[in-house]
Write a protein that binds this DNA or RNA. Structure first.
Lengths: 118, 118
DNA sequence: TCCATAATTCATGAATAATTGAATTATAAG
DNA sequence: CTTATAATTCAATTATTCATGAATTATGGA
């Protein structure tokens, strides 16, 4: 991920409505949510929601797919992971004071097959 | 970390100059960098830099300390870690598709004492 | 075809953020 | 005390973003 991509993604997520939308979509993976349902759930007009979804989409954080009259939006988890890695990359180049505690905090909730506590 | 704190932090980091400043400060931990040196390094006027540093400071991402005529700025790594955890928290509540690959990507560069590969 | 639903685009105004010259504050040296 | 350096604050302008009523596009059913 390039710096400009990260800036676009951070900018997209730094707005109240869009952060709420993205967090909702993460929770609704992998089904996704229709644009109109998002507007109702968050409580904003449909046209406003459409603009916000366009910003998230342009930043690569969500994907969309037309399904009959609705357009289903989904969080792009791999893109989100790329953003997190971009943000953490600097600190990992040579020092562990951020990443080590972060891993320690994350590991209990997401056990993986190749990592184990001793 | 509350949603509003996360929004402030994301908003602070979603601007080109401020993201560059923060990344530089992360690399310069724990020494920190004087405000004037940051302005020169990034290539913006001192008063502009001062405003940007104020935004980062208000978001809790940097701390400052006067040292003679200079003011030394430092990245607040624990605050940054809180932001990363906030962003990752939703996905970890019940699913691992983001966190597990993220941990897998981070662990090789930041080995910790209580986690080991098997 | 005609109508209803879902979503987006357009146009406008309001609010917010960014930039920068000038002035101000804080510190240290002569 | 005066001067120089470092940083911030102020003020004014410019640029960007946000919100929303109205219009437009796309789809499916009667």
């Amino acid at each position: 991920m390039e710096t400009n991509d990260a800036l676009d993604a951070l900018s997209a997520l730094s707005q109240e409505t869009r952060l709420a939308v993205f967090r909702l979509l993460v929770r609704r993976e992998p089904d996704g949510v229709a644009a109109g349902d998002l507007a109702k759930a968050i409580g904003v007009p449909a046209n406003s929601m459409s603009v916000h979804l366009g910003v998230l989409s342009h930043a690569g954080l969500v994907t969309s797919e037309r399904r009959s009259r609705s357009v289903i939006y989904r969080a792009d988890l791999s893109r989100f992971r790329e953003l997190m890695l971009f943000m953490l990359k600097d600190c990992c180049n040579g020092r562990a004071e951020i990443c080590a505690p972060l891993i320690a905090d994350l590991t209990p909730c997401c056990p993986t097959e190749d990592v184990v506590h001793v």
